[in-house]
């Protein structure tokens, strides 16, 4: 493991939302990650962080980097996603008015994450949602 970072993310905190992703991007740049991989991780990280702020009761965003892979993991404490297939559909959103005023809630968050990651998994229950995304640092 090269680095491990954990970022607590508070529900509804639009002021600091994005700071974790900015720090993740800084860390990856310092490690020499650049170009398309850096953009893909940054976009996915920002989307998942905003999802924690908009939809969860709070959670944590974790970054793990080793020599050939970046892993982003988001874990929250609920309330869970009732229908994951529906939530994965582009344009479907349950975001509130406040999120929309901030420029989010377009229903692109989860599809954007999946699109940018090499591996994507999501599991959800009322106790919480866990999203894990992997990004290859070396071409397969």
């Amino acid at each position: 493991m090269i680095i491990h970072r954990e970022y607590p993310v508070q529900a509804g905190d639009y002021i600091t939302a994005g700071e974790a992703s900015a720090d993740i991007k800084r860390n990856l740049k310092q490690l020499g990650v650049s170009g398309k991989v850096l953009k893909c991780v940054s976009v996915a990280s920002y989307e998942v962080e905003l999802n924690l702020v908009i939809h969860s009761l709070g959670g944590v965003l974790m970054l793990d980097v080793d020599s050939d892979r970046v892993v982003l993991e988001s874990k929250d404490i609920g309330p869970g996603i009732p229908d994951i297939d529906l939530a994965m559909r582009e344009g479907y959103s349950t975001a509130n008015e406040e999120a929309r005023n901030q420029g989010f809630g377009a229903g692109m968050g989860l599809p954007n994450m999946k699109r940018n990651a090499d591996t994507f998994s999501i599991a959800s229950s009322p106790a919480g949602t866990c999203i894990t995304m992997g990004f290859n640092l070396k071409e397969q």
């Binding site: 900015a22 991007k25 940054s42």
Partner: peptide, 14 residues
Amino acid sequence: LTNPHVVRTADMLD
């Protein structure tokens, strides 16, 4: 849209 997320989005995308 004039909120900080416009600038943050610009940062993520360079």
